[in-house]
Write a protein that binds this DNA or RNA. Structure first.
Lengths: 243, 243
DNA sequence: TGCAGAAATTGGTTGGACCATTGAACCACT
DNA sequence: AGTGGTTCAATGGTCCAACCAATTTCTGCA
């Protein structure tokens, strides 16, 4: 009675185009930045309409795999392989306080884990790079008497990169815009992020000591201070104006 | 000299179409499942070609915002607002052992944080739902004498859902396929995931006790056992056949 | 040689046409 | 009444041919 019949698949033109194109990219060993055939040529070779090719490429463009430049051509933006994992995340109302807190929670998760991994895996070169970013950040903090979002971000990026897992950097990079939209306009809180400053060095110390649990704990403390700042800012301005 | 001039928008037809459509959806208060105007009507109303409308809708379809059914219409799949944050992530090369370990590290990060958030936020209803899934999983474990990936997954999903942050569930859902590609063929390890079984209940206990740090620690233990299983499996079969 | 303008290339858009699928209305038969 | 088949309009999917707009390349003059 409850027999499960999966729906059959009849036609999937543009998907087939994408699969063929992925195979082509793989065979030609095309990397990021390289140009792939023009839409007209693809349409002719694949025996489909140029319109169909465009729909397929639009999909890839939406996924950030490819960049189209009018008059020039279509270029790869990222490595593409047949077995790729696509994660289109959509956060409704990305402009309000709740949306920012949601992304911050993701950041806390990743930041803690990346710091812990970093403590296990970072070699001398990675540690030196992280410390260099840390020095730059502290220097900027002294001269300009406050947190500098750029240098701060570069420090965190260095940690993510040294985690040895490219996924961390990718995910966090995708959220960069979201974070910085508020970093630049920190809800009217003076000295926003000020409280998080000391934890940058403590994180580094725990990483350098190859103490994953300690690094994780310090990272959690850092995000907690940022979260407190945000909550304070949200309390200051009543936020009733935002839709 | 370094004046930052935002690039002017000379032509951005399909983006404009999407913005207009988002405004329309908002004004008409359309929710998931509802049908939006046909491509022909949209083309006529917006004074653009139907092809342009199609490209715009293809973008939304790729983002999972919309579903097209030939002969029927185009339907909303998720809430859509003009200020939405899209984070299309594409993770390459998830088919080898290193790729799986990389995703597992992401999962550890999210699982730990979600459990902690859950301990803070989960109400009676959410706790009951999680325990229900837990009971189902333990029942399946007893009757079939082994871990059941479906019931196991549903338990974790319930935790993510109760975290109160939709991003967790989205990210983890996108990785579901990747995890299960190996779950089903567990590298020749007998009783794969067996060691992780007891931690499911300990996680729940810590969540129910509203102990975020405890829940986080238990979640970390659970993932650690899975990681050990994987490493054991990778050591068993030499893995030299996988590209 | 250097460079401005012409020409070719390439993605973006348009309008129109036809196909494949869907779903509702209708009809015939039981 | 209900079952099944047919018709038909609506809708997304594909195709074609042309033109527009941005970019690149070529060409010829100074």
């Amino acid at each position: 009675m409850t027999d499960f019949l999966p729906p059959i698949q009849t036609t999937a033109r543009d998907d087939a185009v994408l699969k063929a194109l992925a195979g082509f990219v793989r065979q030609e060993a095309l990397g990021p930045g390289e140009k792939l055939p023009t839409e007209r040529i693809l349409a002719e070779r694949l025996k489909v309409s140029r319109n169909t090719v465009r729909e397929a490429l639009t999909r890839w463009e939406g996924l950030g795999l490819v960049e189209r430049r009018q008059g020039s051509g279509t270029y790869l933006k990222a490595a593409v392989s047949p077995d790729m994992l696509h994660m289109p995340l959509t956060l409704a109302g990305g402009n309000d306080f709740a949306g920012l807190m949601a992304t911050l929670e993701i950041r806390r998760a990743l930041e803690a884990e990346a710091a812990a991994l970093c403590a296990v895996r970072a070699g001398k070169a990675e540690l030196a790079e992280i410390e260099r970013k840390l020095d730059l950040m502290e220097e900027a903090f002294r001269t300009r008497a406050g947190m500098s979002s750029d240098e701060d971000w570069e420090f965190h990026q260095a940690v993510f990169r040294a985690s040895g897992n490219p996924l961390f950097e990718q995910i966090i990079a995708a959220m960069y815009e979201m974070f910085h939209r508020f970093w630049e306009h920190p809800l009217g809180v003076r000295d926003f992020g000020h409280a998080s400053f000391p934890y940058h060095r403590t994180i580094f110390v725990r990483i350098a000591a190859h103490d994953p649990d300690g690094a994780r704990a310090e990272a959690l403390k850092l995000i907690a201070t940022v979260e407190d700042d945000l909550k304070r800012g949200a309390a200051n301005l009543k936020l009733s104006d935002r839709r």
